[in-house]
């Protein structure tokens, strides 16, 4: 059972890290748009050829 005295504090650190990462993701707008990205694939089919092919004169 002694190992728990190491593992429990360790888990606290890990949770702290996970919380930190999640909050940073939320603050940077990662979860702002949960609806549109799934439409992106069909959008791509209508896209013109890559930029190199239609560079301005």
């Amino acid at each position: 059972m002694g190992i728990l005295f190491v593992l429990v504090p360790l888990s606290l650190v890990l949770v702290g890290l996970a919380v930190g990462i999640f909050v940073w993701m939320a603050r940077s707008g990662q979860f702002d748009d949960l609806d549109n990205p799934r439409h992106r694939l069909p959008d791509d089919e209508d896209a013109p050829p890559p930029a190199g092919a239609r560079r301005r004169g």
């Binding site: 949770v15 996970a18 919380v19 999640f22 909050v23 939320a26 707008g29 979860f31 702002d32």
Partner: peptide, 13 residues
């Protein structure tokens, strides 16, 4: 954004 991070914190903790 604050609401999302609140849910995340509540869920993880």
């Amino acid at each position: 954004r604050a609401a999302v991070s609140r849910i995340g914190v509540a869920a993880l903790c």
